[in-house]
């Protein structure tokens, strides 16, 4: 079990990176401009890639270096590039349909983190891991999940929903690196590719949405009810 006996320096680096990525999730939650949203997502992914490499170094899992490279390339470069191209083509630069003002969304996000902390603390206690980096990792994993759902719920631009989904997965990635670094690599690599496929599909769908529904806001999707 890696997290149970880590040297203090490694634990601090892990914590720092995890917290930075949580902050970036808040940047996304608070931004009104799709471009900022996208840059924050890319930055978060790079932090997670760096985290993979660090965990690989301290935990002696050489395959994590490969995962770090793949994460940086696919999720950190290629994915944002594809989304950026869609943004450029669709001419949507900012979120027009907001249900919740970014400031209120930040407050809701903070509440989500408190809830995640409560859950993680309880689990940590039952595992005798209270006070270790495991609790922090679990907190951030759960809170990024909740923030991702919050983004899906309060944003209606199709592109921000795609990014919301990607944040959901980023949270899992981050937590998995710290909690279960030994998880078979096969799965992690396939997840990377799977995401790429997902974005390709989304790209096609967004184009359909514009062509046939006339807008990329999911608020206009209200023909099917009851």
């Amino acid at each position: 079990m890696l997290v149970a006996h880590l040297d203090p320096l490694a634990a601090s680096i892990f914590s720092l990176m995890a917290i930075v990525s949580l902050m970036l999730a808040f940047v996304m939650l608070g931004s009104r401009w799709l471009n900022n949203y996208l840059y924050a997502f890319a930055a978060e992914t790079w932090v997670i890639a760096a985290l993979s490499a660090t965990v690989g170094f301290y935990g002696h899992y050489p395959e994590l270096y490969l995962i770090a490279i793949l994460t940086a390339l696919f999720r950190g470069l290629l994915l944002p590039y594809l989304v950026w191209r869609i943004i450029a083509r669709l001419n949507v630069t900012r979120e027009i349909h907001e249900i919740l003002q970014p400031s209120s969304a930040l407050v809701a996000g903070a509440l989500a983190v408190v809830f995640a902390l409560a859950v993680a603390y309880r689990v940590g206690q039952s595992l005798d891991l209270a006070g270790t980096v495991a609790v922090l990792a679990l907190t951030i994993m759960l809170s990024m999940k909740l923030i991702g759902f919050l983004m899906l719920a309060v944003r209606h631009e199709a592109l921000s929903q795609i990014l919301g989904l990607l944040v959901l997965e980023n949270g899992i990635f981050l937590g998995a690196q710290i909690l279960v670094p030994g998880m078979p690599m096969l799965i992690e690599i396939v997840i990377l590719f799977d995401l790429l496929v997902a974005v390709a599909c989304f790209g096609v769908l967004v184009r359909y949405l514009v062509a046939h529904v006339g807008s990329t806001s999911s608020l206009d999707l209200k023909r099917l009810v009851g």
């Binding site: 199709a158 599909c201 359909y208 949405l209 046939h212 529904v213 999707l221 099917l224």
Partner: peptide
């Protein structure tokens, strides 16, 4: 309608 359903489905 089909596009709307597909979008809701995947998201």
């Amino acid at each position: 309608e089909s596009i709307e359903a597909a979008w809701k489905y995947i998201i």
